[in-house]
Each structure stands twice: as C-alpha cells, then as structure tokens.
Design a protein around this nucleic acid. Structure first.
Lengths: 109, 109
DNA sequence: GCGACGTATAGAAGTATTTCGAAACGTCGA
DNA sequence: TCGACGTTTCGAAATACTTCTATACGTCGC
C-alpha cells in the first residue's frame, strides 16, 4: 500500500460517525445497510453515503444478498494500516550517534 | 486514549500534505517551522497552520528554542494509535459460533 | 531601542464535506 | 406484473477545511 492509499484510508476513518459505523459493524460481525442506519440518527441516504466512502477504500467489504447489502469489516486492511502507520512516520535511526556520515538515513531498514 | 481523541489524530494525519510534513520531520529527526516550509510549496502561514493542527493532537512535539520552533515526531503516540486502531475496530469474536472457539488471534481483550 | 528574522494570528476567498429530501433502481412476495 | 422494501443516486443547502495576504508578536544582533 502506498502513502496515497494509506492517507485515503485514514481520511475515511477520520470521522466520528464513520468510525462508529465501523465499530458497530465490527461488533456485530456483519450488518446490512439498513441495520447500520438503525443505530444512527442519520437519514438512510447519508448512511449509504458514508458506507460507500468506507467501502471505496476497502475498509468495509460489501456482499450483496438479494436486496440487502451485507457489510463486514476488512480486518486485514486495518492490520496493514496499523503496521504501516508508525513505520512510514518513524524517525530514521541516525545510524551513528556521532551524527554524520549518512545524513539522511537512506531508509534501508 | 479514547475514541474521540483517536479520531482527531486520524483526522490530523488524513491529509496528504500534513502526512508528508510528519514524514519529513521524522526523516530529519527535528526541523524548525521554517525548515519544514522550505520543503513544501506553501506559504509560511499555511505551514504554521498545518503544524499547529498536528501539534494540537500531539502527533508533533514543539520545543521552543529562542525564536525557532523545533519540531519532532511523537513516535510513542503513533505507536499507540497503531496499536489501538485494529483493536478498537476488531470484530468481536462471537462467543460461540458452532465452529471455532477462538477463530482469530483474540489478542486478549 | 531598532531593524531583521522566525513564527503566529486574523480575515477572506475558494473548495470540499456533510447532510438532507426527492426520486430512481433492483429484488422480493403475492 | 404489481406494490413494498432495501439501497443508491441526484441536487441543493449548511458547514468545515485549505490557502492566501496582511499583520502582529517575540527574539536576536547591533
């Protein structure tokens, strides 16, 4: 996953309501779009809109079952994001405390 | 860290430019506000504004040294966020589906 | 104290996001 | 096929965010 995708996932999760939606779906295992709506004080189109934002970045997985959209959490992707976050923002260890000789870590690790 | 704070941190990081600022500061170890500005095609007030957003949620730590603001990355907080993210959004193992008494790592609460 | 420099704040313009009501689409049961 | 139900799309209004210029604040060297 590149930084751009990582930032898009963060943006999708960076909303109180959407975060809670993911939590509710996680707690239930799976929920339909309508069942998610029951848990929030938002109109159904708004729920659908937010769920789409989360599904677009693959935080949520949608399986269609007849007229219902069955939604679950993509835990693997969340794990990947969690693993990547500190790694991509980690201070490069300065190789040698004397600092110098390789001014900018060159990543490597 | 409660969910509200977690979401606020995510929101601070959920911007292409701000994410890159944290990366630049991480790569350098420390940078002054002005040094961050040199690395972006944005005006100084805009840089200051974004750094403030990141500092407000403690992703960045600011030490004042004379007229300079010396900025570094709060790695401990990033680690905490990374640890919390999947944990707070994890599917609750359903007490007992017929199969599987511990379907997935459990991570212990 | 003064001017230069680094940083922060204020106010405004442009853009994006959130939310809604209305309406369209697709599937189900009768 | 028809109407009901679950979901999605459309268009608009309210709000929030990003970025700018202008200006203020604080520290340094002289």
């Amino acid at each position: 996953m590149d930084d751009q995708k990582l930032v898009r996932v963060l943006k999708a999760l960076a909303d109180k309501g959407r975060f809670k939606m993911v939590q509710e779906i996680a707690a239930a295992g799976e929920l339909s779009c309508g069942q998610v709506g029951e848990r929030f004080d938002l109109t159904q189109p708004t729920i659908s809109h937010h769920l789409k934002i989360l599904a677009d970045v693959e935080v949520l997985l949608v399986r269609r079952e007849g007229q219902h959209a069955i939604i679950s959490v993509n835990e693997a992707l969340l794990d990947e994001v969690a693993a990547l976050l500190p790694r991509r923002l980690r201070t490069k260890p300065r190789a040698s405390p004397v600092r110098a000789r390789n001014r900018r870590g060159e990543d490597r690790a």
